[in-house]
C-alpha cells in the first residue's frame, strides 16, 4: 500500500470555501443569517416601525391629508367614547372567546392526551390539525350558511320544536339580534370555532406531560375522580390553557373578517383599522388602533411568561 499524503490538497472552490468556513465558523453563521434577518428586519420590523411612526402622525380635518408631524392627538382620539367602545367590545369578545375555547377544548385535549392510543391518537391529531389548517375563509363561510335565518340551525330548532328557545335567545338584549348570523352570539360561536384547534394543541401537550403514575398516585391516596381532576389535572393543564389563550386572544383581537360577515354592524378593532385605512384614508388613526392589540398582547405575554406558559408551546 503506497502511503497517502497526510494533508490532501484543496481541489476547487468548494474545498477552499469549506476551509475558510472551518477557520472562521462565525463567517458561515453570518452568511446564513444575513438574508433571512435582512428580510425580517427590513420588511417586518421596518413595517412595524412605519406603523408606529404613522400612529404619531395626524390627519388634517379639512384637507383629509396626513400631517407628518409628531403628535399624540391620534392616540387621544382612541379615548373618544365611540372609539373606546370598539376597544372594550373587542377585548370583551377576546375574553369570552378564550373562555369558550378552553371549555370546549378540554374534553378533546384530555381524551387525546390520556385515553387515545395508536390509530386513535393519530386520528385525533389529524382531527384537530386538519380543521386548523383548512381554509379560514371557507370555515367562516360555512357558518354563514349554518347561522343564517333560513339555515340549518333554524331548521333544526324548528324540527325539534325548540324554536321558542332560539327566539328567546335572540331576543336577549345586546347579545341577541335579528338572526344568529347578525348577533354577537353568532360572532362568538364562529370565533370559538375558528380558533378552537389553537387551544386544543397546547392543552393536549400540557396534559401529555402529566405522568399517568401521578394520576394513579392520586387515586391510590383515595382521591375521587372529581378531586383528582380539580387538584391534579386542572393545575397541570393550566400552562397549556394559557399558551392556547395567547393564540385565541391575539387572533380575536386582530380579526376583522368574522365580525364583518357574521355579527351586528357594531365595529371591532380589526374592522376599524380596515375601514380607516381604506375608504376613510385615515392611516394615522388606523395605525393607532393597530397598536392597541400589540400593547395588549405584550402585556398578556408578560403575564403568561410568568405563569410558565411558554414551556407548553
Amino acid at each position: 500500500m503506497g502511503l497517502r499524503p497526510v494533508t490532501l490538497p484543496e481541489r476547487g472552490p468548494g474545498d477552499r470555501l469549506t476551509s475558510l468556513f472551518w477557520r472562521r465558523p462565525n463567517l458561515l453563521l453570518v452568511l446564513l443569517l444575513a438574508p433571512p434577518l435582512l428580510w425580517l428586519g427590513v420588511v417586518y420590523l421596518g413595517s412595524l416601525a412605519a406603523l408606529l411612526l404613522q400612529s404619531f402622525f395626524s390627519i388634517d380635518e379639512f384637507s383629509g391629508l396626513v400631517v407628518h408631524e409628531f403628535t399624540l392627538k391620534t392616540y387621544l382620539e382612541l379615548l373618544r367614547p365611540s372609539n373606546f367602545d370598539i376597544l372594550l367590545r373587542t377585548v370583551g369578545m377576546a375574553v369570552a372567546v378564550t373562555l369558550g375555547c378552553a371549555v370546549i377544548a378540554f374534553p378533546i385535549a384530555h381524551y387525546a392526551a390520556r385515553y387515545a392510543r395508536g390509530q386513535w391518537k393519530a386520528a385525533f391529531y389529524l382531527g384537530v390539525m386538519l380543521p386548523l389548517w383548512s381554509s379560514y375563509l371557507v370555515k367562516v363561510y360555512a357558518w354563514k350558511l349554518i347561522l343564517s335565518k333560513e339555515g340549518i340551525v333554524t331548521w333544526a330548532t324548528d324540527a325539534a320544536g325548540a324554536s321558542a328557545v332560539l327566539n328567546a335567545v335572540l331576543a336577549l338584549p345586546v347579545i341577541g339580534g335579528n338572526s344568529l348570523s347578525t348577533s354577537y352570539i353568532g360572532t362568538w360561536i364562529v370565533f370559538v370555532y375558528v380558533w378552537l384547534p389553537y387551544m386544543i394543541l397546547p392543552m393536549q401537550a400540557a396534559l401529555e406531560r402529566v405522568p399517568a403514575s401521578m394520576l394513579e398516585a392520586s387515586a391510590d391516596l383515595g382521591a375521587t375522580r372529581a378531586q383528582t381532576f380539580r387538584t391534579v389535572i386542572l393545575p397541570l393543564a393550566l400552562p397549556g390553557v394559557i399558551a392556547g389563550s395567547i393564540f385565541t386572544f391575539s387572533l380575536t383581537l386582530g380579526d376583522y373578517i368574522i365580525p364583518q360577515i357574521i355579527g351586528s354592524s357594531r365595529l371591532f378593532i380589526g374592522q376599524a383599522v380596515y375601514t380607516l385605512q381604506g375608504t376613510a384614508g385615515n392611516i394615522p388613526l388606523a395605525a393607532a388602533f393597530a397598536v392597541v392589540p400589540i400593547a395588549v398582547m405584550l402585556a398578556y405575554l408578560a403575564v403568561a411568561r410568568r405563569m410558565g406558559a411558554f414551556d407548553a408551546l
Binding site: P5, V6, T7, L8, T18, S19, R23
Partner: peptide, 16 residues
C-alpha cells in the same frame, strides 16, 4: 502535528 505537519489550518475533510 500529524506526521510532523502542523494541523492548525487544515479542515477535517483535508486531513487524511
Amino acid at each position: 502535528r500529524i506526521f510532523g505537519e502542523e494541523s492548525a489550518r487544515v479542515p477535517p475533510n483535508l486531513r487524511n
